[in-house]
Design a binder for these strands. Structure first.
Length: 778
DNA sequence: CAGTGAGCGAGCTTCCGCTTGACTT
């Protein structure tokens, strides 16, 4: 029996700490929170001062009974949950649930898992901070009130199973706002002028000097008249300025910056980054991966220093402590860093290795010297014009941290020229242009959010926590408020004017613009829900709502405000809004009238229905048999932006192609894309080859016959006893097909040897398949 | 599982933050 029981939040942490403390200490983990508000009956008693009703979560019952047992037999219990609001609440719940006696219970905290820090914590126990616990209760209750009162309004007024919340609804709003900003953006063309000069070198070779004009032109005429002036001009170097500059390394990783860099440099979605980091953490390779702190322990800094001196030399070292500047940071942990700096690489999957390497480099670089750069700017005058050409170059004098790591940016413009060394130049030197080019460019619309850039924005606004960034992104996609998609760009033309050998040439070129990869787009449901929330609950989806309640939580934590008073002040006006929305709002369908169909004069509109967004041609008239025509919107189309032409096209499907073998051939678009239907069978059209609007009967027959052939090929075995049982070759290998259901065959089975009886057994052992709801998981 | 776009109205859905599993696709 151990004398001391230490309780921490994470089991991996428990293992490490047990090693440090040695015998006499049993270290256990609570696996995070052990209790939460009851989900039935709201969990908060509105009429009794917002009394929370906590219950032990189903998956924590075992943990709790184990902890109870250990606590009973220990002389002293040390509660070492994190030193933040949530950690303090976990400590309090543990006290309550385990019935711990304050006399032999100590609350301790540390921010890093080092022997020094832990021993120091043991020497400085403190009492539970009930004010901090109350701040957490206020946070928890507020989130429950918001989520569980608004969501049911959405079920009634928009669609069942939807959700709203303090965090997720703002995340959606950011994406909706950005999309509308992009829709309304008017791209303006302008002309950028570049020159390439020829510079003779001493060795007889000629090198090129690229320069950009310090002025842009609004029209092709203005650009052209400037080129005309250049035609008879002298170009002279007016001055050369060389200035030293510095680049500093970025701070060590927090959860949010790790997600951003892994997205930019490695292309990982935030969920993947977190699960890889979890594995690295559990195997002891990195420190805790859910943190908002950029702090490194002294031990870590020492180890980094040693590694830098060993690999790069003394002058590459520069010890830095980074201040966390993010709103509402609670800093219960260290930054995300490698546990051992001498491990440049680790074992594991390629993805784990790449993420580890990123963390290793970033952390090491953070303790390295600035890079020293010499930046040279050359101004070149044009004798017949007032504008200047500017050439600039960079020379790296000392690489410093750059020898290890360089942070990436979200900038997608792609016009960051590689700035290299300039040729040897002197003031008053005359230059000969090889050519001067005016290029039509377009003002840039705002960039759509990626998962990672949305996380950055949320963090900036102080909304959400390191443990919730990735789950929030998942939630808003699961609710189908937002989709992550690639979109193809559109072709656009641009004009180039080029002056060479005294002649001005003109050429119209084309490029693809606006292509998107893995960006977040709002769906029609997302738009409708967002507009509904903005209309009836503006204060809640205000970008500053979290910041303002956080202020009040801080006051509670400081003992200056009573938590249920704060909640009451919030709830009274909030609940009035709920009632108002329930009684005064129309059902929200996001309806938009597109106008009159030019062919029939009937009304064309777009709205949300039971099965998603659709367009409608004509209206239902009472007493008349005539029904309106409906068609679902396709992927990438939106109620808000669909045009009359696009809508009319949708009504052209399904299309009757004619007959084949005496049965009708119909082409249409279904949930899985364009298809041909014939005699009850469906055949998908080939992506990028067939267009449902133009596909011919001949091509359709070709597809039907191709599918027949494939179906025959996929049959591995049939049985005379029952033709409905067949063994087929599918996408994931052989399987058994019986009536409408499919059954798995265990890996490694000799398929040819399966008998009719074997198959029947497999089918029976799986039983009748329950209908699973794929969308929601769980 | 592919077309639909109401109706009866039972019983269900839902929040944010702490933590890890046990899972198929």
């Amino acid at each position: 029996m151990e004398e001391n029981l230490v309780i921490v939040e994470s089991p991996a942490k428990a293992k490490t700490i047990e090693k440090i403390l040695g015998k006499n200490f049993l270290v256990k983990s609570s696996f995070g929170h052990i209790r939460d508000l009851d989900k039935k009956d709201f969990g908060v008693d509105i009429n009794n001062n917002y009394q929370p009703n906590y219950i032990i979560s189903e998956d924590k019952k075992k943990v709790v009974s184990d902890l109870k047992k250990c606590a009973k037999s220990a002389k002293t219990v040390w509660i070492a949950s994190d030193e933040d609001r949530e950690g303090e609440a976990i400590a309090w719940h543990l006290m309550e649930v385990l019935h711990l006696d304050p006399k032999n219970t100590n609350r301790i905290v540390f921010h890093e898992i080092t022997k020094e820090a832990i021993l120091k914590a043991i020497e400085n126990p403190r009492l539970l901070n009930k004010d901090l616990v109350d701040a957490q209760q206020a946070r928890r209750v507020l989130d429950r009130l918001v989520g569980f009162e608004i969501s049911p309004v959405l079920w009634k007024k928009v669609k069942p199973s939807l959700s709203a919340g303090r965090v997720q609804s703002v995340a959606v709003r950011l994406i909706v706002d950005r999309e509308r900003e992009i829709t309304n953006f008017l791209s303006v063309p302008f002309f950028r002028v570049n020159a390439v000069f020829l510079v003779p070198e001493k060795n007889g070779k000629v090198s090129l000097l690229k320069a950009e004009l310090n002025n842009r032109f609004d029209t092709a005429e203005a650009a052209k008249s400037f080129l005309l002036k250049c035609k008879g001009s002298d170009f002279t170097i007016a001055d050369i300025v060389t200035r030293p500059a510095k680049k500093s390394p970025a701070a060590p990783f927090t959860t949010s910056t790790l997600q951003q860099e892994a997205s930019r440099k490695l292309g990982f979605p935030v969920g993947l980054t977190m699960s890889l980091a979890q594995r690295l953490y559990e195997s002891g390779k990195i420190t805790y991966m859910r943190t908002d702190s950029t702090n490194l322990s002294n031990e870590a800094i020492g180890a980094a220093k040693k590694k830098i001196i060993g690999s790069y030399g003394e002058k590459y070292v520069k010890i830095r402590q980074y201040k966390t500047k993010v709103k509402g940071a609670q800093e219960a942990h260290e930054a995300i860093r490698p546990t051992y700096f001498d491990q440049e690489e680790v074992e594991g999957t390629p993805q784990e290795q790449r993420l580890y390497s990123l963390i290793w480099k970033r952390t090491l670089a953070s303790q390295m010297a600035d890079a020293e750069i010499e930046r040279t700017t050359v101004n070149i005058t044009v004798s017949k014009a007032t504008e200047l050409f500017v050439a600039s170059g960079e020379v790296l004098r000392f690489d410093g941290f750059l020898s290890v790591y360089m942070e990436s940016t979200d900038d997608e413009s792609g016009n960051e020229d590689e700035k290299g060394m300039l040729p040897v130049l002197s003031v008053n030197q005359k230059l000969l242009p090889d050519h001067i080019q005016a290029l039509e460019r377009f003002s840039q619309k705002a960039a759509r959010y990626t998962e990672a850039s949305l996380v950055r924005k949320l963090e900036e606004l102080g909304i959400g926590r390191p443990s919730t960034y990735a789950p929030t992104i998942t939630t808003i996609q699961q609710r189908e408020y937002v989709v992550k998609e690639d979109r193809e760009g559109v072709e656009r033309t641009f004009l180039t004017l080029i002056l060479r050998n005294g002649m001005i040439g003109e050429e119209v070129k084309t490029e693809i613009a606006g292509a998107e990869k893995s960006k977040l787009f709002p769906t029609d449901i997302g738009l409708v829900v967002n507009d509904f929330l903005v209309k009836y609950f503006e204060p809640i989806v205000d970008f500053n709502f979290t910041a303002s309640v956080e202020k009040q939580f801080d006051e509670i934590a400081e003992g200056q405000l009573v938590w249920n008073r704060m909640i009451d002040d919030f709830y009274q006006p909030f609940h009035v809004k709920i009632e108002d929305a329930l009684t005064n709002s129309e059902r929200a369908r996001g309806e938009r009238i597109l106008g009159q169909d030019p062919a029939t004069g009937k009304l064309v509109s777009a709205k949300i229905g039971r099965f998603g967004p659709f367009v409608q041609l004509g209206e239902a008239v009472e007493g008349s048999d005539e029904k309106p025509q409906f068609a679902s919107l396709q992927k990438g189309q939106s109620i808000e932006t669909i045009s009359m032409e696009e809508a009319i096209k949708l009504f052209e499907l399904p299309r009757d192609l004619g007959e084949f073998e005496g049965k009708k051939v119909i082409v249409g678009i279904g949930r899985f894309g364009p298809y041909v239907r014939h005699d009850g069978n469906f055949v998908s059209l080939k992506k990028d080859i067939d267009d449902p609007l133009t596909v011919t009967i001949e091509r359709a027959i070709e597809l039907i016959e191709e599918k027949r052939e494939n179906t025959i090929k996929s049959v591995i075995k049939t049985f005379g006893e029952d033709p409905e049982i067949r063994i087929l070759e599918g996408r994931w290998g052989p399987y058994i097909s019986f009536k409408k259901d499919n059954y798995k065959i265990k890996k490694g089975t000799d398929v040819q040897a399966l008998s009719f009886a074997d198959c029947k057994m497999i089918i029976e052992s799986e039983g009748v398949k329950p209908k699973t709801n794929k969308k929601r998981g769980k």
